[in-house]
Simulated scan of single mutants.
Amino acid sequence: MLTSLGIMLLFGLIFSEAAKRLRIPALVGMLFAGVLLGPHVLNIIDKTVLSISGELRQIALVIILTRAGLAMNLKDLKKVGRPALLMCFLPACFEITGYILMAPKLLHITVLEAAIMGAVMAAVSPAVIVPRMLKLTEEGYGTKKGVPQLIMAGASVDDIFVIVLFTSFTSLATGEQVSLLSFAGIPIAVISGVFIGIITGILLNKVFYIMHLRDSLKVIAMLSVSFILLWAEQKSILPFSALLAIMTVGGTLFQNNKEIAGRLSIKFSSLWAGAEILLFILVGTAIDINYAMKAGFSAIAMILIALVFRSVGVYVCFIKTELKRKEKMFCMISYIPKATVQAAIGTIPLAMGLNCGKIVLTVAVLAILLTAPLGAFFIDMTYKKLL
Score class of each variant (00 low, 15 high):
156 S>P: 00
81 G>F: 12
56 L>V: 11
196 I>Q: 08
40 H>Q: 12
242 A>K: 12
215 D>L: 15
49 V>N: 04
314 V>W: 03
326 K>I: 10
358 K>F: 11
102 M>Q: 00
291 Y>C: 06
106 L>I: 10
217 L>Q: 08
351 A>V: 11
187 P>W: 04
47 K>F: 13
334 S>G: 08
153 A>Q: 01
335 Y>C: 14
372 A>N: 04
14 I>A: 15
194 V>W: 03
354 L>F: 09
112 L>D: 11
106 L>F: 15
278 L>N: 01
330 F>M: 01
47 K>E: 13
323 L>R: 09
259 E>Q: 14
348 I>T: 03
375 G>N: 13
260 I>Y: 04
218 K>M: 15
272 W>D: 15
301 A>R: 13
250 G>V: 03
240 F>Q: 03
288 D>G: 10
373 P>F: 07
126 P>R: 04
53 S>F: 09
250 G>R: 02
148 P>T: 07
91 P>D: 05
318 F>S: 01
37 L>F: 06
98 G>Y: 11
275 A>R: 05
239 P>N: 09
284 G>N: 10
35 V>R: 10
379 I>G: 02
317 C>M: 02
25 P>M: 03
337 P>Q: 01
21 R>G: 06
299 A>E: 07
260 I>S: 10
86 L>S: 05
102 M>C: 14
79 K>H: 07
266 I>K: 11
226 S>K: 12
354 L>S: 10
324 K>M: 11
350 L>A: 14
140 G>Q: 01
56 L>F: 05
192 S>Q: 11
358 K>H: 08
275 A>E: 02
227 F>A: 15
5 L>W: 04
88 C>W: 06
249 V>G: 06
12 G>D: 05
67 R>P: 08
210 I>H: 12
154 G>C: 05
279 L>A: 10
226 S>D: 03
33 A>F: 12
112 L>W: 11
69 G>L: 03
166 F>L: 15
313 G>M: 06
191 I>P: 08
211 M>W: 10
379 I>P: 04
37 L>V: 13
342 Q>K: 02
277 I>T: 12
281 I>L: 15
235 K>H: 09
277 I>W: 13
134 L>Y: 14
195 F>P: 00
24 I>K: 13
252 T>C: 09
160 I>Q: 14
8 M>Q: 10
316 V>I: 15
164 V>M: 09
188 I>F: 02
262 G>C: 10
185 G>E: 04
27 L>E: 05
257 N>F: 05
120 V>T: 00
257 N>V: 04
218 K>A: 03
384 K>E: 10
123 A>Y: 04
174 T>L: 06
194 V>C: 05
13 L>V: 15
54 G>F: 13
116 I>R: 02
374 L>N: 13
166 F>R: 11
74 L>P: 09
124 V>P: 07
52 I>T: 10
312 V>P: 12
136 L>Q: 08
380 D>P: 13
150 L>C: 06
238 L>Q: 14
277 I>S: 13
115 A>P: 03
169 F>M: 09
319 I>N: 05
369 L>V: 11
158 D>G: 06
379 I>F: 07
36 L>Y: 08
10 L>E: 13
293 M>C: 14
61 L>G: 06
243 L>H: 01
93 C>P: 00
380 D>Q: 15
276 E>P: 05
105 K>G: 04
342 Q>Y: 07
